[in-house]
């Protein structure tokens, strides 16, 4: 819900996010908007105002949760509007090449994807493996990295009803985003295959580390390679 608050600088919308939260949406192309999110997050984290509970950054938005005992939404708005950015974001992340077993029977939504996009399996795999994507956010679950942007042809919506259980290591797409489910969990994305890095991984401390700003690309492996890579870890 847009507030009766004037927009400032690179902010395109502000909305309440509960009694004790405000969410700021930044303008610009995806990469630029995401950099602005990072800038504000680093800068506010650095200033550490005493009313701040948590900051949750994402693609183009920053959720700011505050202590209602100390301040209200208007105060937080004023604070951000007047905030001088102190941090520049350097984009020099590392590159990850991610193996995917696209023929896995446990993660196979190709028929559904065909209904949505008209692309058959080989075309989907070709598109999925031929672009370099950027990590825009890490969240949803520990180690869950949101990667984007996928090409327009590959865009398909989330499931109408989320699945109760997505297998561990499932490589998935939804809208313009790609991701890997680090652990088995409920989820509403379309599944393409399995990544061997996550096979029987139990400790969140052992998760492959993706950071915002990193780049990624996917490549196809077969069942034999999947088993070898899963055992090699």
């Amino acid at each position: 819900m847009a507030l009766d608050m004037k927009l400032f600088k690179d902010v395109k919308t502000i909305a309440h996010a509960g009694m004790d939260g405000l969410i700021f949406y930044f303008s610009g192309e995806p990469v630029q908007a995401n950099q602005r999110v990072q800038q504000y997050m680093l800068s506010i984290n650095h200033a550490k105002p005493d009313w701040l509970k948590t900051l949750i950054p994402s693609y183009d938005s920053l959720l700011v949760c505050f202590d209602c005992f100390k301040v209200d939404a208007h105060f937080v708005y004023q604070y951000l509007a007047a905030h001088e950015l102190t941090h520049a974001v350097s984009i020099d992340g590392s590159h990850h090449q991610i193996p995917v077993w696209y023929d896995s029977p446990q993660a196979n939504d190709f028929e559904q994807i065909k209904n949505q996009t008209g692309l058959d399996k080989s075309e989907v795999i070709k598109l999925h493996t031929s672009y370099s994507l950027q990590v825009f956010a890490v969240g949803f679950a520990p180690g869950f990295a949101y990667m984007g942007e996928l090409p327009e042809e590959l865009v398909c919506p989330r499931l109408a009803t989320p699945r109760k259980k997505v297998p561990q290591g499932a490589v998935a797409i939804a809208e313009k985003q790609a991701a890997i489910y680090p652990f088995s969990s409920p989820g509403g994305w379309n599944l393409l295959g399995l990544c061997p890095w996550y096979y029987e991984l139990t400790d969140p401390g052992d998760l492959p580390e993706f950071s915002v700003g990193d780049s990624v690309s996917f490549y196809a492996i077969n069942e034999k390679q999947f088993t070898e890579m899963a055992n090699d870890r």
């Binding site: 004790d20 693609y59 919506p157």
Partner: peptide, 19 residues
């Protein structure tokens, strides 16, 4: 709403999947 980007969820948020 279509093609929404994922964003931070606060406690008590009421979300609506397509159903």
């Amino acid at each position: 709403v279509q093609n929404m980007r994922s964003e931070g969820i606060n406690m008590g948020a009421i979300q609506f999947p397509q159903d």
